[in-house]
Amino acid sequence: MYAFDFERPTTIADAVKALAAADAQALGGGQTLIPTLKQRLAQPSKLVSLTHIAEMRGVCRADDGSVAIGGATPHAVVAKEAASLYPALAKLAGQIGDPAVRSRGTIGGSLANNDPSACYPAAVLASGATIVTNSRRIAADDFFRGMFATALNPGEIIVEVRFPVPEKAAYAKFPQPASRFALTGVFVAKFASGVRVAVTGASEGGVFRWKEAEQALSSNFSAEAVRGLSVSPAGMIGDLHGTPEYRAHLVRVMTARAVQAAA
């Protein structure tokens, strides 16, 4: 790692101030950032740790009925505390990384990084969640901007994520055998207004909504409804762990399994 300064603010306001410095970088749980720093692939002048900000931690039911999760809440806490509020989301959180990673990794950190194989983006996009930052609210549909890219401005912090709770929902993840990230993961959420399907791990463009499946499932919420659909391999990730064709195939299979689990 290159040398850097380290700050540990305890309020959002102080964190924002600290991040105003040139080349300052926010540090969530660090489960992705620290390995990146070890490889000397990033050279921040200063890391601003967000894990000591009490107002950014925790899970609760908001006044509007949505589930609000503080940006610095570790996956393990979501897995536990969201279990009754939004079981499918809690279950997803409980499948990220491994237990020790879940103790540290945070929802805000995961979303800000927007790894194309991360699990949380699928839940956020399928739920139609709102990303609350220190300065504004961003709809999920506007937040994800392709691999490792988001709508966040430099120095902007995810302080909270608000999830509308669907009638039925489930996440089906097919893990990449080495990293255990999603080779393909599909989150299906059924609302009164319709069904949303978000896919992670598969596309070169990062998390995306599978509109065709949403349409089919909105009229018939069953695994059969997606079995007949096909997904084009164009634009799918091809690597050692799976060809674009394989990932396209898995999108369909995992969607069907998520629907089955949700129903």
Partner: peptide
């Protein structure tokens, strides 16, 4: 892996200052 405030963490992925 060590325990930090009662939960397991990977101590190679936690800064000492944190």
């Amino acid at each position: 892996v060590v325990h930090m405030n009662g939960v397991p963490v990977k101590s190679c992925a936690v800064f000492a200052l944190d």
